Simulated scan of single mutants.
Amino acid sequence: MDIDRMVALFVRIGAPVLDSMIARGGGDFIGEFGAPLQARVIAETLGAPELAGKIPAWVDALSSGPLEPPERQEILGAALASLRFELERVIDASRETSSDNLSGALDQRNADSGLCRAATLSFLGLWLVAAWETTIQLLANLVIAWSACPEACEASAGDVAGRARLVEEVLRLTPAVHAIDRIATENVSLFGETIPENAIVLAFIAAANSDDEIFPHPRRFDPNRDHSALLSFGQGAHYCLGAKLATLQAAALAGMLAERSVRIGLRDEPLPWRWTLSLRTLPRLDIAFSRA
């Protein structure tokens, strides 16, 4: 998968959309910019740009809650069948043409490791949902930070290294994933308490990213701070597969905003946050653009 090509695609498609929103004085950033662009990027990453229009419905079906009432089960079943059919088609086509995309590369690696096609399909379905919500929210959180701290954002967005630090600070202060669950593989003693083997542990990333012993003045927005202990994408073997692509997309957006010298205002106060145990996301982000 060529990440640089994906980022270039993001800029090529996103720039005219952003210019249109600026010319109109604003709009729904998620509905007009974040969601359509991420659908296209995911589809291209899978190796099937023609699937961009189907991705939002798949994500909605796969992540919309409990399997009740029965109609919900029917919607989920239909979405899974459609997704499986399309991914199988893309994987087979990738093998025939030796295409460079995530679907084909993962399937080949799994096959070489003795894993079945079902493992590839399961991973791709999980990745599709995760890449959708978290990246869209990262882009939205960058826009929100820009509205609150325009001078700091503009100062950081002037070069590649500064944009990277800016995105890391947005990820630290407002991670889309607030918590992750893990299972203890053995008894663990921690702060005088014992976590028993097989217990489910909920680790709060947002709290760790605001630990004042690691990040001095943690509620202060400071792109120039040390982000080496950042946990927003996990760590070790569980580090997010899409972290590099997501951060480069957000950095590209920062560059586009800086080039256009705009001010951003939020039209919804308070913002319509949706909360789950692990996520904090927005269904929409209505913003106003003005020239700086």
Results as ranks from 00 to 15, higher is better:
D2C: 03
R5G: 10
V7M: 02
V7S: 08
V7H: 06
F10K: 07
F10V: 00
F10C: 02
V11M: 07
V11C: 15
R12P: 01
G14H: 12
A15T: 15
L18S: 05
D19V: 03
S20T: 09
A23I: 05
F29L: 01
I30C: 02
E32C: 11
F33R: 01
F33Q: 05
A35G: 01
A35M: 09
P36L: 14
Q38E: 13
A39E: 15
R40V: 09
R40N: 06
I42C: 08
A43Y: 03
A43S: 14
E44F: 00
A48C: 08
E50I: 06
W58T: 03
V59K: 13
A61E: 03
S63K: 00
G65F: 05
G65Q: 15
L67R: 06
P69N: 11
E71I: 05
E71C: 03
L76F: 06
A79R: 03
S82D: 13
L83Y: 12
F85L: 13
F85N: 15
L87N: 07
E88Q: 10
R89D: 11
V90L: 04
D92N: 07
R95W: 00
R95C: 03
D100K: 05
N101H: 10
L102N: 11
L106V: 12
L106W: 11
D107P: 01
S113K: 06
C116F: 06
A118N: 10
T120E: 12
S122T: 15
F123G: 09
G125Y: 02
A130M: 02
W132V: 12
T134L: 00
Q137W: 02
Q137R: 09
Q137Y: 08
L139T: 09
S147E: 04
C153W: 08
C153G: 12
E154M: 13
S156N: 04
A157M: 10
G158W: 00
G158C: 06
L166Y: 07
E169Q: 06
V170C: 12
R172V: 08
R172T: 12
L173P: 02
P175T: 09
A176D: 11
A176E: 13
A179D: 08
I180P: 01
D181S: 15
R182Y: 08
R182L: 15
L190T: 07
F191A: 14
A199H: 08
A199P: 02
I200Q: 09
L202A: 11
L202C: 09
A207S: 14
A208G: 14
S210K: 06
D211N: 13
F215P: 15
P216N: 06
P218A: 03
R220I: 11
R220M: 10
D222P: 15
P223I: 06
N224Y: 01
R225M: 10
R225A: 10
R225N: 05
D226P: 13
L231W: 00
G234H: 11
Q235E: 09
Q235N: 09
G236A: 04
Y239R: 13
C240Y: 08
L241N: 03
G242R: 10
G242D: 00
A243F: 03
L248S: 12
L248I: 11
G255H: 05
S261Q: 12
V262R: 09
R263Q: 14
R263D: 11
I264F: 00
G265H: 11
E269Y: 03
W275P: 04
T276V: 00
T276S: 10
L277I: 00
S278T: 10
R280C: 03
L282P: 14
R284Q: 11
D286I: 00
A292H: 09
